[in-house]
Design a protein around this nucleic acid. Structure first.
Lengths: 247, 247
DNA sequence: GGATGCGTTCACAACTCGTGCACAGCTCCG
DNA sequence: CGGAGCTGTGCACGAGTTGTGAACGCATCC
């Protein structure tokens, strides 16, 4: 988990950093506000923010941040403010809202609590393997099995197939896939999803030849379902024409 | 989201319940501690707990709860305690820890923040499938089902059948169909609706042979209704058409 | 420092879907 | 019964979407 700290209170930041180090949490201090794109590039899992740093545009900045990176864990840490402010922040998308002075140990604990919920695939060891149509995806090994064949999966590949197989039969729009796997919203022209679908198809083809698992829905996204590859399944492929009428 | 409230502070509970009602959140008050199994049966998404209710076994009770229901959002709400206690609770698996007195509005906001993260794929409001005369159109799959046969639908096809089937029995004028599905008004001489009706008829015929779902009303538009395809043209049961035209 | 593996981006090929058109078949009305 | 106007159907084109191979940057590991 990579945590970003956006705050100017150097004393607080210093103490916090020491705690994070003690807890073995990766982190980086962000001295001044940055564009959302710049933050995306940092690949953060969570952020600790004091909106005071952001000046008058704080609310819209936070709102934009939550829109751009829906999977970012956001812990706000401010001087005492009215309840209404805290509620507004939480409604906006913040995961927690602490009031200074706060104990760094508690900040870390809350950060971990947020992270625990944030991305289910981080706790993959505890997740039950997904078993669909003769294929099983094992979270504890980053592998896909079918019979006695198996394929190693990279992190992205694993997250992608985990998401797809976990929603067997449903068509997942590209945007949703991107948000859930990558953690932030898709930029126009981004083809990463397609590329990883291709990689997965290649690996699955090797593991379980003659079967097709990831189906394209043109203009929408992808759907996971175990179906024989070539032989025409009951209704699926349309070979249009009078055949239909004569049937 | 079904929320459980486990607390004996009746004043607090009362105010909280009113807030939850105002926010339209399903909830139920749990007067006294129950076994984990009993809680599982309640199908809660989240819980608000004051561990004071639990007596000396509070920690182990909470620990067991988190182990038994890892997906349960857990918001703890106590009288002031030491930081170490809060940290312990959060580490144990609690998602948030509030100190009384706390504003009910904030409790609800934090509950929602927890729910937002809890399990991302539970919260996607799934559109209900349209079920008409043995045919079901599933919005989450972009498919039409009848029995065990199914057909993939393209976006336009799906939107069109969704509209028609959603207004079973009604005759929809071409212009209205066009405006609702295409989003803008039909140019003179545009035959797109007809073409897509044809495509849908082909696919539905294959999914559910012997049935006719999309009926033409000459000069007006189309009507969706499940009717056996009549091979015998002798006695036409289509007296409806004339009625409609004369009306 | 070099090698390897991963994620991303790019360019081009292949494909799908939506649409317009032409013609055939049908319905309604006089 | 015949004609005008709708509707059904097949075909083909083009824009936009997706598949695919390769190259690049970056991090990690030796």
């Amino acid at each position: 988990m990579q945590v970003g700290i956006l705050d100017t209170d150097s004393g607080f930041v210093h103490v916090l950093v020491k705690r994070l180090e003690a807890a073995g949490v990766q982190h980086r201090v962000i001295a001044s506000p940055r564009s959302h794109d710049a933050l995306v590039a940092l690949r953060l899992s969570a952020m600790i923010v004091d909106p005071a740093v952001l000046g008058p545009a704080a609310w819209s900045y936070l709102e934009g941040l939550c829109a751009r990176m829906p999977n970012l864990g956001l812990v706000v840490c401010t001087a005492p403010v009215a309840v209404a402010q805290r509620v507004r922040g939480l409604r906006l998308g913040a995961d927690d809202w602490l009031t200074k002075p706060c104990h760094p140990e508690e900040v870390v604990a809350r950060l971990e609590a947020v992270g625990r919920r944030r991305s289910p695939w981080d706790q993959r060891g505890e997740q039950a393997p997904v078993e669909v149509g003769g294929l099983s995806v094992r979270p504890d090994r980053f592998q896909a099995y079918a019979g006695d064949a198996s394929a190693d999966l990279t992190r992205r590949e694993f997250e992608l197939i985990q998401l797809l197989a976990g929603r067997e039969g449903q068509v997942l729009p590209r945007e949703e896939i991107y948000e859930r796997v990558w953690g932030y919203s898709m930029a126009h022209g981004d083809r990463s999803v397609d590329v990883f679908v291709r990689k997965l198809r290649q690996k699955l083809e090797k593991v379980s030849p003659g079967w097709r698992y990831i189906h394209t829905h043109f203009g929408i996204g992808y759907r996971f379902a175990a179906e024989p590859a070539v032989a025409a399944p009951a209704v699926e492929p349309e070979r249009q024409g009078g055949v239909l009428l004569s049937a």
